[in-house]
Design a protein around this nucleic acid. Structure first.
Lengths: 376, 376
DNA sequence: TTTTAGCACTCATATTAATTGAGTGCTAAA
DNA sequence: TTTAGCACTCAATTAATATGAGTGCTAAAA
């Protein structure tokens, strides 16, 4: 006769089974049988007992059956449970950390390179798709504005933000303005625009047209042109690398799935939108209220120990094309302000522990790098 | 008794058979049988006779057998023969021409947009991958140089080329230079650099360091920085669109092939090199000697009626990953100088006639567009 | 009450065999 | 030179069979 199990012990057992099952499935890619759990885990139970536990997990939709005579596979909900409370967070292998660190210390010199390199490193270590998104430029704060005549009726506009990014474009003007005149116009403009985000600046430029006084005709014409151009640059930039890694995954045999996937990678706009959502969910400066309001129907996306890393599993994100994938993201900062999102996109069946560690570590590196090169 | 065929008549018959075979194969994607050629072509011959002709074509490696009991399929050599002398060049459908033209007339406003839009149009009409490559920036001729102080020891360098492209970057300086000082330095620099290609300019900047006289210390330090930066921008830029179209092609079932292919698209550098080769083969200003020297082992790459469009079929290009694809390219010009390459990348089994027409037409559009917006 | 051994049942997967038919190559007659 | 006729080949399809991994259930053991 065996003493009765209390509720907690039952739950504990379920969790251990799930944990082992996820590990095993991630390792092998094949549905996991009761027998293999009984043998390899240290529960000291027979396959039949394990089957009983599995039955309950299946009833709760935490694992599933591909077909009658197959083992079990975790569902999205199962992965979620694993990530939320069963994962044993690990650090990256020392050699990997060293490798990454040396990339940032030695290879990357310029602030312009950090984005492309980061997505490359992410993809090369994860073997999935790595990406880095810069914030919408329009959220940046303007700090310099220069107008330089180049040739007939053409003016080069150079804008520099506080974070050190620069954007430039050429506009056509109606009048032929001298270098000196342009300089003083720029001075007037920057006086009223400095410290504004680009978005605000754009608004102001457009408004200034309407309230333009006679003497500022010239300025207003220029302002209009510049205001229009800013829109063009308002898109976020998305760097991606390793998209082809997805192709070699055994998880994707279905061709139409693949096609969907690549369409996404080409339509960067779509992924940008998705990431922008992650961005706005960033804990940094968001009031908790708004956040909980928006997300209340979604399960928690926080792993215990690394609160900054978001994990979205399969159908948890609403975009159809991503429902067989998992998205691991985090934000990065510049002088305490969140300025972008980075992460990886891979199959649901991935080593979450390692990938979370990777994304976390890389974001630290990026933060440090930006800190060091901050020009302010 | 039937009269003997002379040599010419035999050749003529071979060609007709090949032509029909290519059409049919491109249309259906299945190996073409002697019977279907006999029935549908207007040669009035029996399958047996056709088989005789096919036997000879096979001996010459113009067609091949996937296996004993299958019909024939053109080889690379067969496609080459078709493209060189059997193709009946057609124009695009009127509605397609109209659509394209209206894109260039209405949708594309800025010279910066023309490249992305062009690759998009190419891919959307061909259903393959469209691309546009800008020339190496370093070949461009410098026309303006501006140095603008932004913050402490940071200088924005703006370079404008004769073709109207602008490149900008920020450099760090040792000294704090005033706006006026920078302006006069820029004046000195541009005086000696104007009219040079960027490559030459870079060289000159580096040299000037060595010969630097005492009074020009400041300049030489700046020149060094600028010279180094120019290297970074010397890469050609490559715009690509529709890579995912390739996935939906029935021609690619093999996964490893696909993987290779996408690696190429990611490693833009590789494709850039390939296209740079096409670029340097451009007939525009190349002395015939050099060209024939380089290409003498390769078959002619000219279709009769559109001498500017290059066609590379399968193994004709040396890059392994492209050996199951065909590359159709042409160059585009600005004020009579070839400045870039554009085209499509698709399966060997494609409608060459239409694709050649497409690439040709698009390049005309681009030429016209650039002409119209030329600022010189 | 919990665990487990035992066994029947299911169903994906692999293997083998048999069939089909499209298309060829060859030959001999027209 | 052309073609009808025919044997032959071989990919592709279909069917039949076997295998076995893994489950669900039950009844006995702990």
């Amino acid at each position: 006769m065996v003493r009765a199990l209390n509720f907690d012990e039952q739950e504990q057992r379920k969790k251990k089974v799930l944990q082992f099952l996820v590990h095993e499935y991630v390792r092998t890619g094949k549905p996991v049988a009761s027998k293999s759990i009984a043998q390899s885990s240290r529960l000291g139970l027979s396959p039949a007992s394990i089957r009983h536990v599995l039955f309950e997990l299946e009833r709760d939709e935490i694992v599933m059956h591909p077909h009658t005579s197959a083992g079990r596979v975790p569902t999205d909900k199962g992965y979620r449970m694993y990530v939320d409370s069963l994962i044993d967070l690990q650090r990256l292998a020392v050699q990997e950390e060293t490798r990454i660190r040396s990339e940032y210390d030695r290879r990357i010199r310029e602030i312009e390179d950090v984005l492309t390199h980061t997505s490359r490193i992410l993809s090369s270590i994860s073997h999935y798709t790595g990406f880095v998104m810069t914030p919408k430029f329009e959220r940046n704060i303007l700090s310099h504005l220069e107008l330089i005549p180049i040739g007939e009726r053409r003016v080069l506009v150079a804008m520099i933000t506080e974070s050190g990014l620069s954007k430039n474009f050429v506009i056509n003007t109606q009048l032929n303005l001298s270098r000196e005149r342009l300089y003083s116009i720029a001075k007037i403009m920057i006086a009223s625009l400095k410290g504004l985000t680009l978005q605000e600046a754009q608004l102001k430029l457009v408004q200034s047209i309407e309230s333009a006084e006679q003497e500022y005709r010239e300025i207003s014409s220029l302002a209009k042109e510049i205001g229009q151009e800013i829109r063009k640059f308002s898109d976020s930039e998305l760097y991606m690398d390793g998209a082809s890694n997805i192709l070699s995954l055994p998880d994707f045999t279905n061709t139409t799935e693949l096609h969907d996937l690549f369409r996404i990678m080409e339509e960067k706009q779509l992924l940008t939108n998705i990431l922008t959502d992650e961005f706005s969910d960033a804990p940094a400066n968001a009031e908790p209220k708004k956040q909980s309001k928006k997300k209340e129907h979604l399960p928690s996306t926080r792993a215990q120990a690394t609160p900054h890393v978001h994990v979205r599993i399969g159908a948890e994100h609403p975009v159809k094309e991503l429902q067989n994938l998992s998205l691991i993201t985090t934000t990065y900062k510049l002088s305490d302000q969140t300025v972008g999102v980075l992460g990886i996109l891979g199959p649901k069946r991935m080593e979450y522990s390692k990938m979370i560690a990777l994304v976390d570590y890389i974001s630290q590196m990026v933060n440090q790098f930006l800190e060091k090169h901050d020009s302010k």
